[in-house]
Amino acid sequence: METVLITGASRGIGLELTKQLLALDYKVIATYRNAPSNDQLSLKDHGDLTLVELEVTNESSIEALRESLEGQQIDVLINNAGIIGPDEQDRDNVSAPNWLETFSVNTIAPLLVSRAIIPLMQNAANPRIVTISSQMGALNRDAVGMYAYRSSKAAVNKVMQVMALELKEQGITVCPIHPGWVKTDMGGDEADITAQESAAGIIKLTQGLTLDQSGTFFTWEGDVHPW
């Protein structure tokens, strides 16, 4: 069975991906920041789960992760770690430091983590890198505000598109995915779908991804999302 590495798996979509993948008999490496959540610890006795500390914005932490996984094969990387950004994101109040922090987590980290893990994917039969993005970063959508979050997701979409082109010769599929508006700490209680629904859709899509689809922006339901 395949081995899946999930960043930002302490709660929300990342935690639900962990639970559902374990139930499907995948081997899962789930990362946490600082300390595992209680929900993660409740799964620690599962023989196919490995919990690993990772600060996605820290290159030393990323390198430590890579070293800890040396000799293992990673079939799927799910770049799930992300933040909504600062409370103040309107044109007049968004601050440069907060904006940069949002970019660091949402845009730069997925590339840095992917770069570290790619060498561990070389022997996989169908290696895939999936990054949880958002339709809020799609340039075809008219919406206002949330400058930091929207721009960070638009940028990570482009990062993944470029990576898809560069990694095609290595046989690695790369796709950003819109997870839906999800009822999590980030999405809020009024969101459209549950974390369980989003994770199930993401897993189904990821299972069927092929190299021909690399560089495509998908929704959690498996539909192609306009950029």
Rank of each mutant, 00 (worst) to 15 (best):
M163L: 15
A199M: 08
M160D: 15
Q72P: 00
T210F: 03
A64F: 04
T173L: 07
I78T: 05
E67A: 11
A154C: 02
D25I: 00
G47D: 14
P176A: 13
L21E: 11
S10M: 08
E59C: 02
S10H: 07
E169G: 00
T18D: 11
I202T: 10
L5D: 06
S114E: 02
D92C: 00
N123F: 01
A116K: 11
E2Y: 09
L54W: 13
Q122F: 01
A81N: 08
S104T: 07
T7N: 12
G85P: 00
A143C: 02
N126R: 13
N140Y: 12
L49N: 08
H178E: 06
T194E: 14
S134C: 09
L112W: 08
L209I: 11
P119L: 14
A96W: 12
R115D: 04
N126S: 15
L139R: 13
F217A: 08
Q73K: 10
L211Q: 06
I84M: 12
R33W: 11
T194L: 10
E59Y: 01
S95R: 04
I202E: 12
T31N: 08
K27C: 03
L69T: 07
D189W: 01
I6F: 13
G171R: 10
S134W: 07
E16S: 02
G85W: 08
A195G: 09
T3F: 15
I108R: 15
S95H: 02
I202H: 11
S214Q: 03
T216W: 05
C175S: 13
M160W: 09
V94P: 01
S151G: 02
G171A: 13
L77V: 02
N38T: 10
V182D: 11
V52K: 15
M163Q: 10
R115E: 13
K183H: 06
W227A: 07
S60I: 12
M163P: 00
H178S: 05
V76L: 10
V182G: 05
A199S: 09
I132N: 04
I29T: 05
T184L: 11
T131I: 07
T31P: 03
Y149E: 05
L167Y: 08
S60Y: 09
H225G: 01
P86C: 10
N126I: 00
S214P: 01
G82I: 14
A96H: 04
R141H: 12
T107Q: 07
E190Q: 14
Y147N: 01
Y149S: 01
A199T: 01
L139Y: 09
P36Q: 11
Q213V: 05
Q196H: 08
A155C: 04
A138T: 15
E88Q: 10
K44V: 00
D189S: 10
I132D: 07
H225N: 05
N38A: 15
V174A: 13
I132Y: 08
Q72N: 08
N123M: 02
M136L: 15
D90K: 14
W220L: 08
P226F: 07
A30K: 05
A143L: 14
A148L: 14
R141A: 11
P36A: 06
Q161P: 00
N80K: 10
L111C: 02
S214T: 15
T194I: 03
